[in-house]
Amino acid sequence: MSDTILVIGATGTTGSRVAARLTAAGHQVRAASRHGSPVPGAESVSFDWYKPGAYPGVLDSVGRVYLIPPPGDMAPAAVMLPFLERARAAGLYRAVLLGSSAIPQGGPACGVVHEALPGLFEQWAVLRPSWFMQNFTGAHVHAKSIEEDGVIMTATGDGRVGFVDADDIAAVAVHALTGEHAPNTDLVLTGPEPLSHDDIAAIITQVTGRTVVHRRLSYERMRDRLAAQMPLEYAAMLAGMDRAIAEGAEDRVTGTVQRITGRPPRSFRALLEQETRRTFLGVPMR
C-alpha cells in the first residue's frame, strides 16, 4: 500500500504545520504548493488546482492526502472532485479535508466536497475549525489593520467565536492522516473559550502593550471593504459569516482537540504570550 502523504498547500498556515509534524514523526511527505517552495524534510513539488496536467506526477505512490481548497474559489468542487477521482484511481485511500465550522456538509464552497468524500474514499475526515487565531498575527486583513492602525474591523458585533490555534488544527490533522483508522466524520475544532472581537482586542492590548480596538461595521460596509481586495461574491460570503457570528453561530466550544490529541487546545492569550521572544505586530513583547 502506498505510504507517501501528500500535503496540498504545504506552505500555508495549516499545511506548513501539518508537513512539519509529519516529517518530524518520520513520515514520507510530498509537500505541494503553487511554487513548489522547499519544505524541510519533505519532497517539494509544484501544484496548481487549475493545471490538471501535473496531477499524475503529484499523485505517484501517494496513499493519503491533506486537502486545502483553492483559496477564494466559491465553487472549488469543480477542480477538486476530478482531482480526487484521479487520486482514488491512482491508489489514494485516505483524504483529510480542511473545511470550516461555518460551512456544513452540502453547504456552499467546500461543503460540496465534504458531501462527496464518503462516496470517494472508505477512509476520510473533514476538519471544520472555527476562525484561526493566526488571523490576528499573520498576513490576514485583520492582522494588517492591527499593524497599520491598531484596529480590528468586523461586522460581528458582540458575537463570540471559539478561535482556534492553527497548531491545534495541524495536530488533529496528523492524527486523522496517520491514525490506524480515519474518523470518517467531520470534526468541529475550537479553542478553549469563545471570545468576542472586543475580547481579542483587549487581550492583544494587554499582552503587547499596544492599544488595539474593535471597530464595528455594518454588513454592507464590511462587504464593501473586503470587496476592494477580493471578488464581490466572496467578500459577500465572508461578510455574511461575520453577520452569522453576530447572531451567535460560532458561540461554542468543542472538546475535539482534547479528545483527538490528548491535550487541551491553546488559548489566544497563551499563543501571544509564547511569542515573548519575538516581535509581535512590530511591538516588542513584554
Rank of each mutant, 00 (worst) to 15 (best):
V39T: 09
V39Q: 11
P40H: 09
G41D: 13
A42T: 04
E43H: 14
E43W: 10
V45N: 05
V45M: 12
S46W: 06
F47C: 03
D48C: 00
Y50L: 13
Y50N: 14
Y50A: 12
Y50R: 14
K51V: 14
G53Q: 09
Y55L: 05
Y55D: 08
P56D: 08
P56Y: 11
P56R: 02
G57T: 04
L59Q: 03
D60W: 08
D60S: 10
S61W: 08
S61K: 15
G63C: 14
G63H: 15
G63E: 07
V65A: 15
V65K: 03
Y66E: 01
I68N: 04
P69E: 05
P71A: 04
D73C: 13
A77S: 12
A77G: 08
A77N: 12
M80T: 10
L81W: 13
P82M: 13
P82N: 07
E85G: 01
R86F: 02
A89N: 09
A89V: 12
Y93I: 04
Y93L: 13
Y93E: 15
R94T: 00
R94A: 06
R94E: 04
A95T: 01
V96A: 01
V96R: 00
L97W: 10
G99Y: 11
G99L: 12
S100E: 12
I103T: 14
P104R: 03
P104K: 04
G106R: 03
G107T: 03
G107S: 10
P108H: 06
V113K: 04
V113A: 07
V113I: 08
E115R: 14
E115Q: 11
L117M: 06
P118V: 03
G119H: 02
G119M: 03
L120Y: 10
F121A: 00
E122L: 05
Q123D: 11
Q123N: 00
A125G: 15
A125R: 05
V126Q: 07
P129S: 11
S130N: 13
W131R: 06
F132Y: 15
M133P: 02
Q134G: 05
N135Y: 10
N135M: 07
T137V: 13
G138W: 09
V141A: 13
V141E: 13
V141N: 07
K144P: 00
K144Q: 14
I146F: 11
E147D: 09
E147P: 00
D149P: 01
G150V: 03
G150M: 06
V151C: 14
I152L: 06
M153A: 15
T154A: 09
T154W: 03
A155V: 00
D158G: 11
G159H: 13
G159K: 11
R160I: 01
R160L: 05
V161F: 01
V161S: 02
V161P: 03
F163K: 01
V164A: 08
D165T: 12
D165M: 08
D165A: 13
D165W: 09
D168G: 08
I169H: 07
I169D: 09
